[in-house]
């Protein structure tokens, strides 16, 4: 498992890392938020917006929280039994002005928050494309206990590293070949579930080249804690070179290789089995990857392809069924018409 490059000094984005850093330092632990680890040190526009929203909500909530933190001890102490100087009004039990205040303030706070929620949830909807620029399509398939990143337009796939150019946004489709998993790159933005037979979507973008933690957050068995990867944002040139490397060093994703991929096990098991010695540590590269892999994996659970057919590349009617079931997913989760997708 890689460690992530640490930011040498913090404080540039005062509010951003401030809270975490203060906590970290006060606890005497040297390094504060590691770069690429947390949305509190965001590396992409979504995470940055989430961080700002996070602090905004905290600030607003202080309106309700701080009075409790102050008045609870204050009132308890002031009206302690032995303080005979304090007024005692045992029968006092109601006051309209106070009542208006204690209902009014939380209501006001929640009204403001509701407006924010509505806007932010729509603005940062993981299904919504980020910018009009040309995005990079990546299809993510969750196995026990590793992710496979398929680049359908490039006919390559990788494990352990998700490479992409930092000047383009990522247009991610996800499914699971096993139990439910949750795909997450905290420094870039939202997580989203990956479920067998269904397809979810996610859009992310990095601000600049860098390496970020990626993981699964939904427990799926004994290799769960090891299901990490590196998300690597590169320059446009760097990305082109990287794709060349993947093509040069990768092994074809044939039936034999696919059996290794779908077997229970971690990244290291796959690496060993496909003899990925020439590939950089912690990665596996595949070439000759079917552009329909994700659709085929989904279709497997909807009465379609057996696992040996999954790697086959052709647009069959089966694939279309798979695509429909994706709309069905949205419908069953939300009750909205399947029109949302394509």
């Amino acid at each position: 498992m890689p460690t992530f490059r640490r930011r040498p000094h913090i404080g540039r984005r005062a509010i951003g890392t401030g809270l975490l850093a203060a906590l970290a330092l006060s606890a005497g632990s040297g390094p504060a938020a590691a770069e690429g680890l947390s949305f509190l040190d965001p590396q992409g526009p979504v995470a940055a917006a989430q961080r700002d929203h996070f602090y905004a909500v905290i600030l607003l909530m202080l309106v309700v929280v701080v009075p409790v933190l102050i008045f609870t001890p204050l009132v308890a102490w002031r009206y302690r039994y032995r303080n005979h100087g304090a007024r005692y009004a045992p029968d006092w039990k109601f006051s309209w002005p106070l009542e208006a205040l204690i209902w009014g303030v939380p209501v006001a706070v929640v009204v403001v928050l509701s407006v924010w929620i509505w806007q932010e949830t729509h603005d940062l909807d993981p299904y919504a494309p980020l910018a009009a620029d040309k995005s990079l399509r990546v299809e993510v398939i969750g196995y026990d206990w590793k992710w496979l990143f398929v680049y359908p337009d490039l006919h390559i796939a990788t494990m352990g590293v998700l490479g992409f150019p930092s000047d383009r946004s990522l247009d991610i489709r996800l499914t699971s070949a096993s139990v439910m998993q949750s795909f997450f790159i905290p420094a870039l933005g939202s997580q989203i579930y990956a479920m067998a037979g269904m397809r979810t979507k996610l859009h992310l973008k990095a601000n600049r080249p860098g390496t970020f933690l990626g993981e699964n957050t939904q427990y799926n068995g004994k290799g769960f804690h090891d299901q990490k990867f590196r998300a690597r944002a590169m320059t446009a040139r760097g990305f082109t070179d990287w794709v060349k490397q993947v093509r040069a060093k990768g092994v074809p994703l044939d039936a034999k290789a696919y059996d290794v991929v779908r077997a229970k096990g971690g990244l290291t098991d796959v690496r060993r089995a496909v003899a990925g010695g020439s590939m950089p540590p912690g990665t596996v590269y595949f070439t000759d990857v079917s552009a329909d892999l994700l659709a085929n994996v989904m279709h497997q659970f909807n009465g379609g392809a057996s696992s040996s057919e999954v790697i086959v590349s052709e647009r069959s009617p089966a694939n279309d069924t798979a695509l429909r079931s994706d709309a069905g997913h949205a419908a069953s989760a939300t009750g909205e018409p399947p029109a949302r997708e394509e």
Binding site: L113, I117, W118, T121, H122, D125, A128, Y193, A333
Partner: peptide, 17 residues
């Protein structure tokens, strides 16, 4: 995080608050 649309999520978020 299960993939329903933003309006549904927002509605439940507001109800929660």
């Amino acid at each position: 995080t299960m993939g329903q649309n933003a309006s549904v999520n927002a509605a439940f978020g507001i109800a929660t608050m």
